[in-house]
Nucleic acid binder design. Sequence first.
DNA 1: TATGAATGAGGCTTCATTCAT
DNA 2: TATGAATGAAGCCTCATTCAT
Lengths: 217, 217, 217, 217
Amino acid sequence: MSDDTKIFEELFDENKKLTEKQKKIIAAAIESFAEKGYAATSTSEIANKAGVAEGTIFRHYKTKKDLLLAIASPVMAKFLAPFVIKDLNKVLNQKYEHYEDFMKAMIKNRALFLKENIPLFRILIQEIPFQPELKEQFTEHVAQKIIDRLEKTINHYQEKGQIIEMPTYTVMRVTISTIFGYLIARYILAPEGDWDDEVEINRTVEILMHGLAPKEA
Amino acid sequence: MSDDTKIFEELFDENKKLTEKQKKIIAAAIESFAEKGYAATSTSEIANKAGVAEGTIFRHYKTKKDLLLAIASPVMAKFLAPFVIKDLNKVLNQKYEHYEDFMKAMIKNRALFLKENIPLFRILIQEIPFQPELKEQFTEHVAQKIIDRLEKTINHYQEKGQIIEMPTYTVMRVTISTIFGYLIARYILAPEGDWDDEVEINRTVEILMHGLAPKEA
Amino acid sequence: MSDDTKIFEELFDENKKLTEKQKKIIAAAIESFAEKGYAATSTSEIANKAGVAEGTIFRHYKTKKDLLLAIASPVMAKFLAPFVIKDLNKVLNQKYEHYEDFMKAMIKNRALFLKENIPLFRILIQEIPFQPELKEQFTEHVAQKIIDRLEKTINHYQEKGQIIEMPTYTVMRVTISTIFGYLIARYILAPEGDWDDEVEINRTVEILMHGLAPKEA
Amino acid sequence: MSDDTKIFEELFDENKKLTEKQKKIIAAAIESFAEKGYAATSTSEIANKAGVAEGTIFRHYKTKKDLLLAIASPVMAKFLAPFVIKDLNKVLNQKYEHYEDFMKAMIKNRALFLKENIPLFRILIQEIPFQPELKEQFTEHVAQKIIDRLEKTINHYQEKGQIIEMPTYTVMRVTISTIFGYLIARYILAPEGDWDDEVEINRTVEILMHGLAPKEA
DNA sequence: TATGAATGAGGCTTCATTCAT
DNA sequence: TATGAATGAAGCCTCATTCAT
């Protein structure tokens, strides 16, 4: 869990053999894309911020869009990772007897992930609507897999009688809404706020759990 | 309540004295901004789509950004409207005895609003992060007022013992997350889906109500 | 004959409604393309020479290549014109009883044409090998028609017993070689030379005629 | 005669001590220059095609233009070779009693030369108009010598009464036009055609000879 | 000798904006 | 008021050339 936090270091520093210049380009691009958006960021601005010549960018990334994809794609893959663990049910059975525990674990895990990669997260949610390549990557490779896993997970806990009998997709939607609502409020809308994450996450999950609890007999 | 649905017709057709050309410009700009984003839309493209000369746009809107603001500002004002009804408490007391009813009314109302103005909604959520003017308008004039009203409303129902004793902001966050989660799923992520809105809204509110219900004595 | 000489004036000044700026752009482009070649001419150089902003070029010609085509296409059409006179045979019968007269008329006519349009001619022969669009235009629309006409013409004079009995294409090749050889030497290789055109053309045709004369019985 | 055919092998393989890489560079450059023109060919493209690093090109040829000259100059020298044989008159007297024989020999010889070096030939005629260095080399070192020799040759046969009494340059021009006309048609315009070279050359020379024959008394 | 990352000038093109008509 | 030609700054990208390894 601790090894997938700082995406930048992991993906752009170690795994691939990136030049020092390439790393600077990536870092500069992430910063500018997150702040002003892909379309409003100029390659010369990135070059400046990275301290390289503009031509250097294009030696490594044929296109400005290629640069965007080189940034966005690994993030999606990484964000997806915890959802594609093999034999999830087994993990669930062993690890979390209650949906509540699963929820808390997941929300904390992904919150940690986001906390370390806010700019990357911003780029994703801001550019997916405009970049067909990203949209496709997201819907086909990311969203679908997350949905599949969550579906199984929810069914698993429904069978154990821990979740209300409602259509899986409704449960899923409310769950995801609640989690993303917290993450967005916490890290995007009011990152300067005075948050006690431990307490706030517990409260959020508590409300959600109440809401999803099966009706009393 | 029925008169604030079709923002375009209301705001851009009737209220202001807009020439035929202006309306076409606004309509074209909305379409392109929503589809490709503000930065990636060219004024010549808008002129083309609107069937006017390029210069005509700048006769009516000094700047491309002015055009964006001319579109976005009224939407925010309009979206805000139902939250700034004077003497809200009175309204609440009279109209909705239960938080659940209030929630259902609100979610249906704003869903209707969004349904009729999806492109405008997209423009807002896509451009607010990048346009300081919009961000300021939103945080100061819109978000703050909505929060104020919701705070009073939630307190109102908490006092009536219908809502769990938790910090108002936590309740508010979960509430808004749930509503927006539904709206985004319904109208942006899967607008082509097979939705039974009546049923789905009821389910969503039901879960939320369970979650926010005060703990049993 | 006198009305198809100065292509520039005719095609780029009168026929089409070209702005003053457009004419300057065309004139500047012709000059530079002829002198340095299409690929080695920059649009900024053309803009400078034409005394317009670089953007102005692209308002009128979407692409640098479009500008080239806008120059080259009319020249080909114009050069082709005298070869597509309807009912050529009739004309020939009436006009030129001897192949020799026909040859002299043609060579003088096209020489006059070239003399007035040397830069355009240079652009054509220099760029046709590299621009597929031009190559196609030339082979399909120009060369083929010229060949067709010449074939009929040659056959016509062969039947009259004025031309040696050899394959038409051989006769045609030698004829065209001789004419182009004169034109290229006269206007491209040694334009500064001391030419007595009347005499030189007569000599050239005389040699050609001797060469193509039927063998004595 | 057989030793000046394949210029590439002769000039770029054996004579000079070229490394394997240099040969590959030359070969790649010839291919690209002939196909797209000097200005439209990039050094990186040449490096790619040659399978060497970009820097390697510049290690051997200080400049892109140097590379062009390294290709073009030897070709001109080689093409020139048969015209600078010492004591030409003697050779002529001994070898070819009739101008016709001389013509046939020359046309066949140069045709063979071209056939084996079409790309080099294309580069020459395409780039000479644009490269002052080449133009100078050509006019001063090549054209002038060829003209000198042909002048003597023509005079020689005129004195023998085999050629019409016309200005030498006129005879020369028609002769060269006819030869080049054949070569260009044969190897550049219609290389795919169905040519019987032996027959076609004989026909061409026959026409030319008829044309240049002295007038009957 | 060979490499290929790096450069920065310059190329083509787009774009928001102006202005004479 | 409406037009659209004109602008020139700026954008993305290519390219010949250099240089440390």
